Amino acid sequence: MNGLRTTAPRTESLQQFIKYLLVGGLNTAISAVIIFVVQAAGASPIVANIVGYAIGVTFSFALNSKFTFRTAATRHSAMRFLVVVLISYLANLATMLAVLHLTHAPYVAQLCGIPVYVIVGFLGNKYWAMRAR
């Protein structure tokens, strides 16, 4: 019986992580389309990027709340979500800069930062921002 108790939380975490990856992939695609459409409509690349990311973060919060973690989307969890996004980005940036310093390979450095962003974001959301209350 103890084996069942320890397997269930791992299975749930794996399912949540897979959902988190799916939401992230969809979010990336939607954000990119919005960025390109806004830019094609005449906005500067910076404005298009801000609009795309703002909509993307909002979409990600809503979908991860409902689909991935099945928690209420409240103002409190939204603020925590934004903190997790910032921390995830800073972890990504630190990783990218460290790898860049060690390898002098910018594309490798960028690629190394991506899983750090994803893992920090998932853990921060699962155990803090969107933790069931």
Rank of each mutant, 00 (worst) to 15 (best):
G52N: 09
Y20E: 03
G124W: 01
M130P: 04
P45I: 08
A73W: 03
Y53F: 09
L97H: 13
K19N: 11
L4T: 08
L102A: 15
C112V: 11
R70W: 00
A72G: 13
A29L: 12
V108I: 15
V120I: 15
R75W: 03
W128S: 01
G42P: 05
I34H: 10
L90T: 09
A32V: 08
A78W: 05
T103F: 01
N125Q: 15
H76R: 15
R10D: 04
L63F: 09
L26V: 14
V23N: 05
L100R: 13
C112T: 13
A41N: 09
F36C: 09
L111M: 15
M96G: 03
I34M: 08
A129Q: 00
V37M: 09
N27V: 04
R5I: 02
N49F: 05
I34F: 03
Q16H: 08
A43T: 03
M79A: 12
A94W: 10
H104D: 15
I34V: 15
S65Y: 03
I50D: 00
L82A: 12
L111E: 14
P45A: 07
I30Q: 04
V85H: 02
M130F: 09
R10Q: 02
A62S: 13
R80P: 02
A109T: 14
A72D: 12
F81V: 10
T103P: 07
T58S: 14
Q39I: 02
A29W: 05
I114Q: 13
L4F: 04
T7D: 00
I119Q: 04
I46F: 13
A73G: 15
A132F: 02
K66T: 14
L82H: 13
M1W: 04
F122V: 02
R75S: 14
M130L: 12
V47N: 11
R10T: 04
V120F: 04
V33Q: 04
L86M: 14
F61T: 05
A109Q: 04
P106N: 08
L100A: 12
I46D: 07
G25W: 06
G52L: 01
N2P: 05
A132W: 00
K19M: 03
V99D: 11
L111A: 15
A32G: 10
V51Y: 05
S31L: 05
V99Q: 11
L90A: 12
A40F: 07
K19A: 07
G121Y: 02
L14K: 07
N92E: 15
L4W: 09
A72S: 14
L22S: 12
I87M: 11
K126T: 09
R131C: 06
K126G: 00
V33N: 07
L111Q: 13
F67A: 08
E12Q: 10
A40I: 01
H76P: 03
R70G: 03
M79T: 13
T6L: 14
G25K: 10
A48C: 01
A40Q: 07
F67Q: 05
S44V: 08
